[in-house]
Every structure is written in structure tokens, then in C-alpha cells.
Computed example of a mutant assay.
Amino acid sequence: MGDPARTDKMSVTIPSDLAAELRARAGRGNVSAYVTDALVRQLEHDRLGDLLAELAEEHGPVTEDELAQARAEWPDR
């Protein structure tokens, strides 16, 4: 991520009920930090999706056999 000391001020419009829940969860003084953390997670998720699409395009879709093998080798949580 970029330099934490450098920020841009943005304005967003969200539904009132969502804004109220956000304020309740984050607290009025922490809304920007809460939204920034959520945005970082979403961007990571989006980049992972981009990578998966690129790999599927290059190597083809993952087969059911490959999924079963990966699940069998993955440690239990």
C-alpha cells in the first residue's frame, strides 16, 4: 500500500442505513480507518480474482479431479 502519511480526501454516497451501521461499528472517529481496511481487503480480493481469471485463461479451468486432490492435501482447519 502507499505511504500511510499521504492521504486523499474523497466523498462517497452510501445508503443511510449502511452509513448508520458503519458509524455504529466503526465509531464516528474511526470511519475512515474502517473503510480503508475494508477497501484494502476488497482490492486484494479483486486482484486475486484477476489472477485466477488469468490462470484459467492460460491453463484452462480447474478440473473436479484437481479440486479433489487439492482438498485432500489441504490441512484441516
Rank of each mutant, 00 (worst) to 15 (best):
G49H: 04
S11T: 14
L22E: 01
E58M: 10
E73L: 15
G29K: 05
R71Q: 12
V31L: 02
V62N: 00
P61T: 07
G49V: 03
N30S: 07
L48D: 06
A53G: 11
A56H: 14
Q42C: 11
P75L: 05
E21H: 13
A70M: 15
G27Y: 00
A24S: 14
H59M: 06
L43G: 06
R6P: 02
L48Y: 07
D17S: 07
A38M: 07
L52V: 08
S16I: 12
M10C: 11
T13M: 10
R41T: 05
L43P: 00
K9R: 14
A26Y: 00
L22G: 00
P15T: 04
P4K: 00
L67A: 13
L67D: 13
G60F: 01
R47Y: 02
A68E: 12
T36A: 11
N30M: 06
R28S: 15
E54Q: 08
K9G: 04
E44L: 07
L39K: 03
R28M: 13
E73K: 11
Y34P: 04
G49S: 06
T13W: 09
V31R: 02
S16R: 14
A38H: 04
A26K: 00
A70D: 13
K9M: 08
A24T: 11
P61L: 08
E54D: 08
L55G: 01
A70F: 14
R41W: 06
K9V: 09
D3V: 04
L52N: 08
L52A: 09
G29W: 01
A20D: 06
R28L: 14
L48C: 08
D50P: 00
V31S: 01
A20Q: 07
T13A: 12
T63D: 01
A19E: 03
L51Q: 10
R71V: 09
L67E: 15
L51D: 06
V31W: 00
L67W: 14
R77P: 08
V12P: 00
G60H: 00
D8Y: 13
A72I: 05
E58L: 11
L51Y: 06
T7I: 05
L55N: 01
L22K: 02
G49I: 03
A70V: 13
G29A: 05
E57R: 06
A20F: 03
